[in-house]
Measured scan of single mutants.
Amino acid sequence: NQASVVANQLIPINTALALVMMRSEVVTPVGIPAEDIPRLVSMQVNRAVPLGTTLMPDMVKGYA
């Protein structure tokens, strides 16, 4: 199964993503693939992302 990017902490709106904020986990539904974690670093989220939430492409500015 494909691992997705999951929030490792609460990520406030407009926060630039850092490695420590993300982990990979096999979840349903599938979100952003875990292999894209390096690409996500320094991109901003466009909403608050609670701990344990799967990151979806529409949550990250400039990802989709």
Rank of each mutant, 00 (worst) to 15 (best):
residue 54 T to G: 02
residue 38 P to A: 10
residue 25 E to T: 08
residue 8 N to G: 08
residue 39 R to W: 08
residue 9 Q to N: 07
residue 64 A to H: 15
residue 24 S to R: 12
residue 20 V to D: 12
residue 29 P to G: 03
residue 59 M to T: 05
residue 35 E to C: 07
residue 22 M to D: 02
residue 16 A to W: 10
residue 6 V to K: 03
residue 20 V to H: 13
residue 1 N to S: 14
residue 27 V to T: 13
residue 40 L to D: 01
residue 19 L to N: 06
residue 30 V to D: 10
residue 62 G to E: 09
residue 47 R to A: 09
residue 54 T to F: 03
residue 63 Y to Q: 03
residue 29 P to N: 04
residue 5 V to Y: 01
residue 24 S to F: 07
residue 24 S to P: 15
residue 17 L to R: 00
residue 10 L to G: 08
residue 57 P to F: 07
residue 41 V to S: 03
residue 20 V to I: 13
residue 32 I to R: 01
residue 36 D to G: 05
residue 9 Q to S: 09
residue 43 M to D: 02
residue 21 M to R: 00
residue 53 T to C: 06
residue 25 E to H: 08
residue 40 L to N: 02
residue 41 V to H: 04
residue 3 A to V: 09
residue 48 A to D: 14
residue 8 N to P: 00
residue 15 T to W: 05
residue 18 A to K: 14
residue 26 V to R: 09
residue 10 L to E: 14
residue 9 Q to T: 13
residue 61 K to D: 12
residue 13 I to T: 14
residue 33 P to F: 07
residue 46 N to I: 12
residue 35 E to G: 12
residue 13 I to P: 10
residue 63 Y to H: 04
residue 61 K to V: 13
residue 12 P to S: 11
residue 9 Q to M: 14
residue 57 P to C: 05
residue 15 T to V: 09
residue 54 T to A: 05
residue 48 A to K: 14
residue 56 M to Y: 09
residue 26 V to Q: 10
residue 33 P to C: 05
residue 24 S to M: 10
residue 17 L to V: 03
residue 46 N to A: 11
residue 17 L to E: 00
residue 19 L to G: 07
residue 43 M to Y: 09
residue 9 Q to D: 08
residue 17 L to I: 10
residue 37 I to R: 06
residue 10 L to H: 15
residue 25 E to C: 05
residue 26 V to G: 04
residue 63 Y to F: 07
residue 42 S to F: 09
residue 14 N to Y: 09
residue 31 G to E: 00
residue 43 M to E: 04
residue 33 P to Y: 08
residue 19 L to R: 13
residue 49 V to L: 09
residue 14 N to D: 13
residue 44 Q to L: 12
residue 18 A to G: 11
residue 25 E to Y: 06
residue 59 M to E: 02
residue 55 L to G: 01
residue 24 S to H: 07
residue 63 Y to M: 05
residue 49 V to E: 02
residue 61 K to Y: 15
residue 52 G to T: 02
residue 8 N to S: 12
residue 46 N to T: 15
residue 28 T to A: 11
residue 4 S to C: 04
residue 23 R to K: 13
residue 64 A to T: 15
residue 38 P to K: 14
residue 8 N to E: 08
residue 59 M to P: 02
residue 46 N to Y: 08
residue 45 V to W: 02
residue 28 T to M: 13
residue 41 V to R: 05
residue 22 M to W: 01
residue 16 A to M: 12
residue 31 G to I: 01
residue 48 A to S: 14
residue 59 M to V: 08
residue 38 P to W: 14
residue 29 P to E: 05
residue 31 G to W: 03
residue 54 T to C: 04
residue 47 R to D: 06
residue 33 P to A: 10
residue 26 V to W: 10
residue 8 N to C: 04
residue 39 R to L: 09
residue 28 T to N: 12
residue 49 V to H: 01
residue 36 D to C: 05
residue 10 L to S: 15
residue 19 L to S: 13
residue 42 S to W: 08
residue 11 I to M: 03
residue 64 A to Q: 15
residue 25 E to G: 11
residue 55 L to I: 13
residue 54 T to R: 03
residue 53 T to W: 11
residue 36 D to S: 12
residue 37 I to N: 01
residue 43 M to A: 08
residue 12 P to L: 09
residue 2 Q to Y: 11
residue 42 S to D: 12
residue 37 I to W: 03
residue 31 G to M: 02
residue 24 S to E: 11
residue 26 V to L: 13
residue 25 E to L: 13
residue 28 T to F: 14
residue 41 V to Q: 05
residue 52 G to S: 06
residue 11 I to K: 01
residue 35 E to R: 12
residue 51 L to F: 13
residue 20 V to R: 10
residue 54 T to I: 07
residue 29 P to I: 05
residue 16 A to V: 14
residue 6 V to L: 07
residue 26 V to T: 08
residue 42 S to N: 12
residue 26 V to E: 08
residue 34 A to R: 06
residue 29 P to L: 04
residue 39 R to G: 09
residue 29 P to K: 05
residue 37 I to C: 04
residue 22 M to L: 14
residue 47 R to E: 10
residue 24 S to G: 13
residue 43 M to L: 15
residue 45 V to K: 00
residue 15 T to R: 06
residue 48 A to M: 11
residue 45 V to R: 00
residue 57 P to Y: 09
residue 50 P to Y: 09
residue 15 T to E: 08
residue 59 M to G: 03
residue 44 Q to F: 09
residue 50 P to G: 13
residue 64 A to F: 11
residue 10 L to N: 15
residue 27 V to Q: 04
residue 38 P to V: 09
residue 27 V to E: 01
residue 9 Q to H: 10
residue 45 V to G: 03
residue 36 D to W: 10
residue 50 P to S: 14
residue 7 A to V: 08
residue 2 Q to E: 09
residue 61 K to S: 15
residue 22 M to I: 12
residue 53 T to E: 10
residue 11 I to G: 01
residue 56 M to E: 09
residue 17 L to A: 00
residue 38 P to E: 09
residue 25 E to N: 12
residue 56 M to R: 09
residue 41 V to I: 11
residue 60 V to H: 00
residue 44 Q to A: 09
residue 60 V to I: 11
residue 13 I to Q: 14
residue 41 V to D: 03
residue 2 Q to G: 14
residue 3 A to E: 10
residue 35 E to F: 15
residue 34 A to K: 06
residue 54 T to Y: 01
residue 43 M to P: 01
residue 53 T to V: 15
residue 9 Q to E: 11
residue 6 V to H: 00
residue 31 G to C: 03
residue 42 S to P: 02
residue 32 I to N: 01
residue 6 V to I: 14
residue 58 D to A: 13
residue 38 P to C: 04
residue 27 V to C: 05
residue 11 I to A: 00
residue 10 L to P: 14
residue 56 M to F: 10
residue 22 M to Y: 02
residue 41 V to A: 05
residue 40 L to P: 02
residue 30 V to H: 14
residue 49 V to K: 01
residue 40 L to G: 01
residue 16 A to Q: 12
residue 51 L to T: 11
residue 14 N to P: 00
residue 42 S to T: 09
residue 35 E to K: 11
residue 61 K to W: 09
residue 6 V to E: 02
residue 48 A to E: 13
residue 13 I to S: 12
residue 59 M to R: 01
residue 3 A to C: 06
residue 8 N to A: 14
residue 31 G to S: 00
residue 6 V to Y: 02
residue 43 M to R: 10
residue 18 A to H: 08
residue 51 L to S: 14
residue 53 T to L: 12
residue 29 P to H: 05
residue 1 N to R: 08
residue 53 T to G: 10
residue 16 A to H: 13
residue 62 G to Y: 08
residue 46 N to G: 09
residue 5 V to G: 01
residue 17 L to H: 00
residue 44 Q to M: 15
residue 57 P to L: 05
residue 33 P to Q: 06
residue 48 A to W: 12
residue 30 V to W: 10
residue 28 T to D: 11
residue 58 D to M: 08
residue 39 R to Q: 11
residue 4 S to L: 01
residue 38 P to D: 11
residue 9 Q to C: 05
residue 1 N to V: 15
residue 64 A to R: 04
residue 62 G to R: 09
residue 14 N to F: 13
residue 44 Q to R: 14
residue 23 R to I: 07
residue 49 V to G: 02
residue 26 V to N: 13
residue 63 Y to G: 03
residue 57 P to H: 07
residue 30 V to Q: 11
residue 20 V to L: 14
residue 3 A to Q: 11
residue 57 P to W: 10
residue 29 P to S: 03
residue 39 R to T: 15
residue 36 D to E: 14
residue 46 N to W: 08
residue 53 T to K: 09
residue 37 I to Q: 04
residue 5 V to W: 02
residue 45 V to H: 00
residue 18 A to Q: 12
residue 14 N to M: 07
residue 45 V to C: 04
residue 63 Y to I: 04
residue 17 L to G: 00
residue 34 A to D: 07
residue 23 R to L: 05
residue 39 R to C: 06
residue 18 A to F: 06
